[in-house]
Design a protein around this nucleic acid. Structure first.
Lengths: 214, 214
DNA sequence: TAGATTGTTAATCGATTAACAATC
DNA sequence: TAGATTGTTAATCGATTAACAATC
Protein backbone atom coordinates (compact mmCIF):
# COMPACT_ATOMS: atom_id res chain seq x y z
CA UNK A 1 0.00 0.00 0.00
CA UNK A 2 2.58 2.54 -1.12
CA UNK A 3 1.41 5.74 -2.80
CA UNK A 4 3.12 8.20 -5.10
CA UNK A 5 4.38 11.61 -4.01
CA UNK A 6 1.27 13.15 -2.49
CA UNK A 7 1.31 16.84 -1.67
CA UNK A 8 0.75 18.05 1.87
CA UNK A 9 -2.32 19.95 0.77
CA UNK A 10 -3.95 16.72 -0.34
CA UNK A 11 -3.11 14.94 2.90
CA UNK A 12 -4.54 17.75 4.97
CA UNK A 13 -7.84 17.55 3.13
CA UNK A 14 -8.31 13.85 3.80
CA UNK A 15 -9.26 14.32 7.46
CA UNK A 16 -11.82 16.91 6.39
CA UNK A 17 -13.39 14.44 4.01
CA UNK A 18 -13.34 11.85 6.73
CA UNK A 19 -15.09 14.07 9.21
CA UNK A 20 -17.91 14.93 6.86
CA UNK A 21 -18.25 11.36 5.68
CA UNK A 22 -18.58 10.23 9.28
CA UNK A 23 -21.40 12.69 9.76
CA UNK A 24 -23.10 11.37 6.65
CA UNK A 25 -22.68 7.80 7.83
CA UNK A 26 -24.26 8.70 11.13
CA UNK A 27 -27.24 10.09 9.22
CA UNK A 28 -27.43 6.85 7.23
CA UNK A 29 -26.59 8.49 3.96
CA UNK A 30 -25.45 5.75 1.57
CA UNK A 31 -23.87 7.65 -1.27
CA UNK A 32 -22.16 10.98 -1.80
CA UNK A 33 -20.92 12.76 -4.92
CA UNK A 34 -17.85 14.94 -5.24
CA UNK A 35 -20.29 17.77 -5.76
CA UNK A 36 -21.99 17.13 -2.42
CA UNK A 37 -18.64 17.02 -0.68
CA UNK A 38 -17.45 20.13 -2.44
CA UNK A 39 -20.53 22.10 -1.54
CA UNK A 40 -20.19 21.24 2.10
CA UNK A 41 -16.46 21.73 2.39
CA UNK A 42 -16.19 24.66 0.04
CA UNK A 43 -13.92 22.86 -2.34
CA UNK A 44 -13.93 22.28 -6.06
CA UNK A 45 -15.45 18.87 -6.89
CA UNK A 46 -12.71 18.19 -9.41
CA UNK A 47 -10.17 18.68 -6.68
CA UNK A 48 -11.89 16.17 -4.46
CA UNK A 49 -12.06 13.57 -7.22
CA UNK A 50 -8.41 14.15 -7.98
CA UNK A 51 -7.41 13.87 -4.34
CA UNK A 52 -9.18 10.56 -3.96
CA UNK A 53 -7.94 9.24 -7.26
CA UNK A 54 -4.35 9.44 -6.02
CA UNK A 55 -5.16 6.50 -3.81
CA UNK A 56 -7.45 4.38 -5.93
CA UNK A 57 -10.76 4.25 -7.76
CA UNK A 58 -13.24 4.56 -4.95
CA UNK A 59 -16.28 5.86 -6.82
CA UNK A 60 -18.80 4.63 -9.35
CA UNK A 61 -19.38 6.66 -12.47
CA UNK A 62 -22.88 8.03 -12.59
CA UNK A 63 -23.42 7.19 -8.92
CA UNK A 64 -20.79 8.72 -6.65
CA UNK A 65 -18.99 7.30 -3.64
CA UNK A 66 -20.32 4.78 -1.16
CA UNK A 67 -20.03 6.56 2.18
CA UNK A 68 -19.08 3.58 4.31
CA UNK A 69 -16.59 2.28 1.80
CA UNK A 70 -14.92 5.66 1.39
CA UNK A 71 -14.67 6.08 5.16
CA UNK A 72 -12.84 2.77 5.39
CA UNK A 73 -10.53 3.68 2.55
CA UNK A 74 -9.59 7.08 3.93
CA UNK A 75 -9.08 5.63 7.38
CA UNK A 76 -6.71 3.16 5.82
CA UNK A 77 -4.81 5.84 3.95
CA UNK A 78 -4.41 7.89 7.11
CA UNK A 79 -3.41 4.73 9.00
CA UNK A 80 -6.30 5.18 11.38
CA UNK A 81 -7.24 1.55 10.89
CA UNK A 82 -4.80 0.69 13.65
CA UNK A 83 -4.60 2.17 17.11
CA UNK A 84 -1.96 4.86 17.30
CA UNK A 85 -0.51 5.61 20.69
CA UNK A 86 0.29 9.16 21.64
CA UNK A 87 2.23 10.64 24.55
CA UNK A 88 1.91 14.18 25.82
CA UNK A 89 4.43 16.32 27.66
CA UNK A 90 3.26 19.35 29.59
CA UNK A 91 0.28 18.80 31.87
CA UNK A 92 -0.61 22.47 32.09
CA UNK A 93 -3.87 23.94 30.98
CA UNK A 94 -3.44 23.13 27.34
CA UNK A 95 -2.12 19.66 27.98
CA UNK A 96 -5.05 18.86 30.21
CA UNK A 97 -7.43 20.18 27.61
CA UNK A 98 -5.97 17.87 25.01
CA UNK A 99 -6.04 14.88 27.32
CA UNK A 100 -9.68 15.43 27.97
CA UNK A 101 -10.22 15.80 24.26
CA UNK A 102 -9.07 12.22 24.12
CA UNK A 103 -12.67 11.30 23.50
CA UNK A 104 -12.54 13.49 20.43
CA UNK A 105 -9.41 11.91 19.09
CA UNK A 106 -11.02 8.58 19.57
CA UNK A 107 -10.59 7.90 15.88
CA UNK A 108 -7.98 5.36 16.86
CA UNK A 109 -5.55 7.76 18.43
CA UNK A 110 -5.11 7.47 22.14
CA UNK A 111 -3.03 9.47 24.56
CA UNK A 112 -1.50 6.73 26.63
CA UNK A 113 1.00 8.64 28.77
CA UNK A 114 1.41 12.14 30.17
CA UNK A 115 4.60 13.71 31.49
CA UNK A 116 5.51 16.92 33.25
CA UNK A 117 8.68 18.49 34.58
CA UNK A 118 6.97 20.04 37.58
CA UNK A 119 7.31 17.75 40.64
CA UNK A 120 4.04 19.10 42.03
CA UNK A 121 2.13 17.70 39.13
CA UNK A 122 3.59 14.20 39.21
CA UNK A 123 0.92 11.66 40.09
CA UNK A 124 -1.97 13.96 39.23
CA UNK A 125 -4.72 12.09 37.46
CA UNK A 126 -5.85 13.45 34.15
CA UNK A 127 -8.57 11.51 32.49
CA UNK A 128 -7.46 8.11 33.82
CA UNK A 129 -3.77 8.81 33.32
CA UNK A 130 -1.27 9.54 36.03
CA UNK A 131 1.22 12.29 35.27
CA UNK A 132 4.75 10.87 35.14
CA UNK A 133 8.09 12.59 35.66
CA UNK A 134 10.25 13.42 32.64
CA UNK A 135 12.82 10.84 33.68
CA UNK A 136 10.42 8.10 32.71
CA UNK A 137 9.62 9.45 29.28
CA UNK A 138 12.04 7.50 27.15
CA UNK A 139 11.38 4.19 28.84
CA UNK A 140 7.60 4.53 28.91
CA UNK A 141 7.33 5.72 25.34
CA UNK A 142 9.36 2.76 24.18
CA UNK A 143 7.46 0.26 26.26
CA UNK A 144 4.09 1.49 25.15
CA UNK A 145 5.10 1.74 21.50
CA UNK A 146 4.07 5.37 21.41
CA UNK A 147 4.38 6.70 17.88
CA UNK A 148 3.37 10.35 18.22
CA UNK A 149 4.52 12.87 20.79
CA UNK A 150 2.57 16.00 21.68
CA UNK A 151 4.46 18.97 23.08
CA UNK A 152 2.55 21.41 25.27
CA UNK A 153 5.34 23.02 27.25
CA UNK A 154 6.70 26.58 27.16
CA UNK A 155 8.66 27.50 24.04
CA UNK A 156 11.94 27.45 25.93
CA UNK A 157 11.51 23.75 26.77
CA UNK A 158 10.17 22.56 23.43
CA UNK A 159 13.48 21.52 21.88
CA UNK A 160 14.51 19.59 24.96
CA UNK A 161 11.26 17.65 24.94
CA UNK A 162 11.54 17.03 21.22
CA UNK A 163 15.00 15.57 21.74
CA UNK A 164 13.61 13.16 24.31
CA UNK A 165 10.84 12.08 22.01
CA UNK A 166 13.34 11.49 19.25
CA UNK A 167 15.53 9.45 21.54
CA UNK A 168 12.51 7.39 22.52
CA UNK A 169 11.77 6.69 18.88
CA UNK A 170 8.53 8.47 18.08
CA UNK A 171 7.74 8.83 14.38
CA UNK A 172 5.89 12.12 14.53
CA UNK A 173 5.62 15.17 16.78
CA UNK A 174 2.78 17.57 17.21
CA UNK A 175 4.15 20.79 18.63
CA UNK A 176 1.91 23.31 20.34
CA UNK A 177 4.79 25.38 21.68
CA UNK A 178 5.48 28.58 19.77
CA UNK A 179 8.94 27.51 18.74
CA UNK A 180 10.58 25.81 15.81
CA UNK A 181 12.10 22.50 16.76
CA UNK A 182 14.84 20.61 14.97
CA UNK A 183 14.55 16.87 14.59
CA UNK A 184 16.02 14.26 12.25
CA UNK A 185 14.43 14.49 8.84
CA UNK A 186 12.67 11.15 9.01
CA UNK A 187 10.54 12.42 11.88
CA UNK A 188 7.55 14.45 10.89
CA UNK A 189 6.67 17.59 12.85
CA UNK A 190 3.31 19.35 12.68
CA UNK A 191 2.78 22.69 14.32
CA UNK A 192 -0.34 23.99 15.98
CA UNK A 193 0.68 27.54 16.44
CA UNK A 194 -2.09 29.50 17.90
CA UNK A 195 -0.23 32.81 17.97
CA UNK A 196 0.51 32.69 14.28
CA UNK A 197 -3.07 31.89 13.46
CA UNK A 198 -4.32 34.76 15.56
CA UNK A 199 -1.79 37.30 14.33
CA UNK A 200 -2.46 36.46 10.72
CA UNK A 201 -6.16 36.87 11.44
CA UNK A 202 -5.43 40.39 12.64
CA UNK A 203 -4.12 41.24 9.19
CA UNK A 204 -7.59 40.84 7.78
CA UNK A 205 -9.25 43.20 10.24
CA UNK A 206 -10.34 46.58 9.01
CA UNK A 207 -7.71 49.21 9.64
CA UNK A 208 -8.11 51.84 12.37
CA UNK A 209 -11.65 51.47 13.56
CA UNK A 210 -10.96 52.83 17.02
CA UNK A 211 -13.54 55.54 16.49
CA UNK A 212 -17.02 54.21 17.15
CA UNK A 213 -20.56 55.37 17.33
CA UNK A 214 -20.90 56.41 20.96
CA UNK B 1 -1.89 52.08 3.93
CA UNK B 2 -3.69 49.79 1.50
CA UNK B 3 -1.80 46.86 -0.01
CA UNK B 4 -2.31 44.85 -3.20
CA UNK B 5 -3.76 41.36 -3.26
CA UNK B 6 -1.51 39.48 -0.87
CA UNK B 7 -1.76 35.71 -0.74
CA UNK B 8 -2.67 33.94 2.47
CA UNK B 9 0.64 32.12 2.43
CA UNK B 10 2.48 35.42 2.64
CA UNK B 11 0.32 36.69 5.48
CA UNK B 12 0.84 33.54 7.47
CA UNK B 13 4.61 33.91 7.21
CA UNK B 14 4.65 37.43 8.60
CA UNK B 15 4.02 36.36 12.20
CA UNK B 16 6.88 33.88 11.89
CA UNK B 17 9.21 36.64 10.79
CA UNK B 18 7.94 38.76 13.63
CA UNK B 19 8.59 36.11 16.22
CA UNK B 20 12.16 35.54 15.13
CA UNK B 21 12.83 39.25 14.80
CA UNK B 22 11.61 39.76 18.33
CA UNK B 23 14.08 37.17 19.53
CA UNK B 24 16.85 38.92 17.66
CA UNK B 25 15.86 42.26 19.12
CA UNK B 26 15.98 40.79 22.59
CA UNK B 27 19.53 39.62 21.88
CA UNK B 28 20.39 43.13 20.70
CA UNK B 29 21.02 42.07 17.13
CA UNK B 30 20.87 45.18 14.96
CA UNK B 31 20.67 43.82 11.46
CA UNK B 32 19.46 40.69 9.74
CA UNK B 33 19.68 39.47 6.17
CA UNK B 34 17.10 37.47 4.26
CA UNK B 35 19.62 34.68 4.34
CA UNK B 36 19.78 34.71 8.15
CA UNK B 37 16.01 34.66 8.34
CA UNK B 38 15.75 31.92 5.77
CA UNK B 39 18.24 29.72 7.52
CA UNK B 40 16.42 29.98 10.79
CA UNK B 41 12.92 29.61 9.44
CA UNK B 42 13.75 27.11 6.75
CA UNK B 43 12.59 29.35 3.96
CA UNK B 44 14.11 30.50 0.72
CA UNK B 45 15.73 33.93 1.16
CA UNK B 46 14.25 35.12 -2.12
CA UNK B 47 10.83 34.30 -0.80
CA UNK B 48 11.38 36.35 2.31
CA UNK B 49 12.59 39.34 0.32
CA UNK B 50 9.61 39.03 -1.96
CA UNK B 51 7.18 38.74 0.94
CA UNK B 52 8.51 41.89 2.54
CA UNK B 53 8.71 43.77 -0.73
CA UNK B 54 4.94 43.50 -1.11
CA UNK B 55 4.65 46.02 1.66
CA UNK B 56 7.53 48.37 1.01
CA UNK B 57 11.30 48.67 0.78
CA UNK B 58 12.41 47.83 4.27
CA UNK B 59 15.99 46.74 3.65
CA UNK B 60 19.28 48.28 2.59
CA UNK B 61 21.17 46.77 -0.29
CA UNK B 62 24.46 45.29 0.79
CA UNK B 63 23.40 45.52 4.46
CA UNK B 64 20.13 43.74 5.19
CA UNK B 65 17.21 44.73 7.37
CA UNK B 66 17.30 46.75 10.56
CA UNK B 67 15.72 44.48 13.14
CA UNK B 68 13.88 47.13 15.13
CA UNK B 69 12.60 48.89 12.07
CA UNK B 70 11.37 45.68 10.48
CA UNK B 71 9.60 44.66 13.69
CA UNK B 72 7.73 47.95 13.66
CA UNK B 73 6.83 47.58 10.01
CA UNK B 74 5.51 44.05 10.34
CA UNK B 75 3.58 44.94 13.44
CA UNK B 76 1.96 47.71 11.46
CA UNK B 77 1.12 45.43 8.56
CA UNK B 78 -0.48 42.93 10.93
CA UNK B 79 -2.28 45.78 12.70
CA UNK B 80 -0.60 44.85 15.94
CA UNK B 81 0.33 48.48 16.47
CA UNK B 82 -3.05 48.98 18.09
CA UNK B 83 -4.61 46.98 20.88
CA UNK B 84 -6.99 44.38 19.51
CA UNK B 85 -9.69 43.15 21.85
CA UNK B 86 -10.67 39.52 21.79
CA UNK B 87 -13.59 37.67 23.38
CA UNK B 88 -13.69 33.96 24.09
CA UNK B 89 -16.67 31.65 24.36
CA UNK B 90 -16.30 28.32 26.10
CA UNK B 91 -14.54 28.39 29.46
CA UNK B 92 -13.69 24.70 29.42
CA UNK B 93 -10.20 23.33 29.54
CA UNK B 94 -9.12 24.71 26.23
CA UNK B 95 -10.73 28.09 26.81
CA UNK B 96 -8.98 28.43 30.13
CA UNK B 97 -5.68 27.45 28.58
CA UNK B 98 -6.03 30.20 26.01
CA UNK B 99 -7.03 32.78 28.60
CA UNK B 100 -3.96 32.01 30.59
CA UNK B 101 -1.93 32.23 27.42
CA UNK B 102 -3.02 35.83 27.40
CA UNK B 103 0.47 36.70 28.45
CA UNK B 104 1.70 35.05 25.29
CA UNK B 105 -0.70 36.93 23.06
CA UNK B 106 0.48 40.07 24.70
CA UNK B 107 1.56 41.32 21.33
CA UNK B 108 -1.30 43.75 21.54
CA UNK B 109 -4.08 41.23 21.55
CA UNK B 110 -6.03 40.93 24.74
CA UNK B 111 -8.83 38.64 25.74
CA UNK B 112 -11.18 41.07 27.41
CA UNK B 113 -14.27 38.94 27.99
CA UNK B 114 -15.10 35.27 28.52
CA UNK B 115 -18.49 33.62 28.14
CA UNK B 116 -19.93 30.21 28.84
CA UNK B 117 -23.32 28.56 28.49
CA UNK B 118 -22.92 26.50 31.64
CA UNK B 119 -24.57 28.26 34.62
CA UNK B 120 -22.13 26.63 37.01
CA UNK B 121 -19.23 28.39 35.40
CA UNK B 122 -20.72 31.89 35.44
CA UNK B 123 -18.75 34.14 37.72
CA UNK B 124 -15.68 31.92 37.77
CA UNK B 125 -12.51 33.96 37.60
CA UNK B 126 -10.07 33.11 34.87
CA UNK B 127 -6.95 35.19 34.82
CA UNK B 128 -8.65 38.37 36.09
CA UNK B 129 -11.78 37.89 34.00
CA UNK B 130 -15.15 36.83 35.31
CA UNK B 131 -17.02 34.32 33.16
CA UNK B 132 -20.23 35.86 31.83
CA UNK B 133 -23.42 34.18 30.64
CA UNK B 134 -24.13 33.92 26.92
CA UNK B 135 -26.98 36.39 27.22
CA UNK B 136 -24.49 39.17 27.74
CA UNK B 137 -22.30 38.35 24.78
CA UNK B 138 -23.71 40.71 22.20
CA UNK B 139 -23.92 43.67 24.52
CA UNK B 140 -20.49 43.20 26.07
CA UNK B 141 -18.73 42.58 22.78
CA UNK B 142 -20.22 45.76 21.38
CA UNK B 143 -19.42 47.83 24.43
CA UNK B 144 -15.84 46.67 24.60
CA UNK B 145 -15.27 47.04 20.87
CA UNK B 146 -14.18 43.44 20.65
CA UNK B 147 -12.97 42.69 17.13
CA UNK B 148 -12.04 39.01 17.27
CA UNK B 149 -14.06 36.15 18.71
CA UNK B 150 -12.55 32.86 19.80
CA UNK B 151 -14.74 29.77 19.82
CA UNK B 152 -13.79 26.94 22.17
CA UNK B 153 -17.11 25.14 22.55
CA UNK B 154 -18.19 21.69 21.35
CA UNK B 155 -18.66 21.33 17.60
CA UNK B 156 -22.43 21.22 17.95
CA UNK B 157 -22.51 24.71 19.47
CA UNK B 158 -19.95 26.37 17.22
CA UNK B 159 -22.37 27.74 14.63
CA UNK B 160 -24.64 29.21 17.29
CA UNK B 161 -21.73 31.00 18.91
CA UNK B 162 -20.48 32.23 15.56
CA UNK B 163 -23.91 33.69 14.84
CA UNK B 164 -23.78 35.61 18.09
CA UNK B 165 -20.34 36.95 17.34
CA UNK B 166 -21.50 38.04 13.92
CA UNK B 167 -24.51 39.78 15.41
CA UNK B 168 -22.24 41.56 17.85
CA UNK B 169 -20.09 42.81 15.00
CA UNK B 170 -16.75 41.06 15.32
CA UNK B 171 -14.51 41.26 12.27
CA UNK B 172 -12.75 37.92 12.65
CA UNK B 173 -13.34 34.57 14.28
CA UNK B 174 -10.84 32.02 15.46
CA UNK B 175 -12.56 28.67 15.65
CA UNK B 176 -11.13 25.83 17.71
CA UNK B 177 -14.24 23.68 17.41
CA UNK B 178 -13.95 20.85 14.90
CA UNK B 179 -16.74 22.19 12.71
CA UNK B 180 -17.09 24.39 9.68
CA UNK B 181 -18.98 27.56 10.46
CA UNK B 182 -20.81 29.80 8.01
CA UNK B 183 -20.52 33.54 8.38
CA UNK B 184 -20.98 36.54 6.09
CA UNK B 185 -18.13 36.80 3.64
CA UNK B 186 -16.70 40.02 5.07
CA UNK B 187 -15.91 38.22 8.30
CA UNK B 188 -12.70 36.26 8.33
CA UNK B 189 -12.59 32.83 9.95
CA UNK B 190 -9.41 31.00 10.88
CA UNK B 191 -9.47 27.43 12.05
CA UNK B 192 -7.27 25.78 14.62
CA UNK B 193 -8.26 22.23 14.03
CA UNK B 194 -6.26 19.97 16.18
CA UNK B 195 -7.89 16.76 14.96
CA UNK B 196 -7.04 17.49 11.34
CA UNK B 197 -3.48 18.29 12.22
CA UNK B 198 -3.10 15.07 14.16
CA UNK B 199 -4.81 12.85 11.62
CA UNK B 200 -2.74 14.22 8.78
CA UNK B 201 0.33 13.58 10.89
CA UNK B 202 -0.70 9.94 11.11
CA UNK B 203 -0.45 9.71 7.33
CA UNK B 204 3.29 10.19 7.56
CA UNK B 205 3.87 7.43 10.08
CA UNK B 206 5.46 4.25 8.90
CA UNK B 207 2.92 1.64 7.96
CA UNK B 208 2.30 -1.42 10.10
CA UNK B 209 4.97 -1.34 12.74
CA UNK B 210 2.95 -3.20 15.35
CA UNK B 211 5.56 -5.92 15.43
CA UNK B 212 8.47 -4.87 17.64
CA UNK B 213 11.66 -6.24 18.95
CA UNK B 214 10.52 -7.82 22.19
C1' DT C 1 -32.05 5.28 -23.29
C1' DA C 2 -31.11 9.74 -20.76
C1' DG C 3 -28.97 11.69 -16.80
C1' DA C 4 -25.43 11.76 -13.58
C1' DT C 5 -20.94 11.41 -12.09
C1' DT C 6 -16.45 9.45 -12.06
C1' DG C 7 -11.34 9.33 -13.31
C1' DT C 8 -8.08 11.70 -15.92
C1' DT C 9 -5.89 14.72 -19.24
C1' DA C 10 -5.09 19.33 -20.53
C1' DA C 11 -5.34 24.26 -19.41
C1' DT C 12 -4.95 27.66 -16.09
C1' DC C 13 -3.56 29.82 -12.34
C1' DG C 14 -0.58 31.03 -8.60
C1' DA C 15 3.38 30.49 -5.71
C1' DT C 16 8.25 29.59 -5.24
C1' DT C 17 12.88 30.01 -6.78
C1' DA C 18 16.74 31.72 -9.61
C1' DA C 19 19.16 35.31 -11.40
C1' DC C 20 20.94 39.78 -11.60
C1' DA C 21 21.25 44.88 -11.89
C1' DA C 22 21.32 48.37 -8.44
C1' DT C 23 23.59 50.02 -4.52
C1' DC C 24 25.11 50.25 0.29
C1' DT D 1 37.07 49.38 -4.59
C1' DA D 2 35.32 44.65 -3.40
C1' DG D 3 31.83 42.17 -1.08
C1' DA D 4 27.29 41.70 0.37
C1' DT D 5 22.59 41.95 -0.07
C1' DT D 6 18.43 44.03 -1.57
C1' DG D 7 14.29 44.54 -4.78
C1' DT D 8 12.46 42.72 -8.86
C1' DT D 9 11.95 40.35 -13.20
C1' DA D 10 11.91 36.04 -15.45
C1' DA D 11 11.84 30.98 -15.12
C1' DT D 12 10.23 27.11 -12.84
C1' DC D 13 7.49 24.43 -10.39
C1' DG D 14 3.28 22.76 -8.47
C1' DA D 15 -1.52 22.96 -7.40
C1' DT D 16 -6.18 23.95 -8.84
C1' DT D 17 -9.75 23.95 -12.18
C1' DA D 18 -12.02 22.84 -16.60
C1' DA D 19 -13.36 19.66 -19.78
C1' DC D 20 -14.76 15.35 -21.40
C1' DA D 21 -14.75 10.38 -22.61
C1' DA D 22 -16.14 6.39 -20.11
C1' DT D 23 -19.78 4.22 -17.82
C1' DC D 24 -23.10 3.27 -14.11
Amino acid sequence: MKFPKISEAVVRRLPMYLRFLNELAKSDVQTVSSQDLGRRLDLNPAQIRKDLAYFGEFGKKGIGYDVGYLVEKIRGILKLDQEIRVALVGAGNLGQALCNYNAYLKDNMRISAVFDANPNRIGDRINQLSVQPMEELVRTVREQHVRIGIITVPATEAQRVADQFVEAGVEGIMNFAPAIIKVPSQIRVHYADFTIELQSLAYYLNRGETEEEE
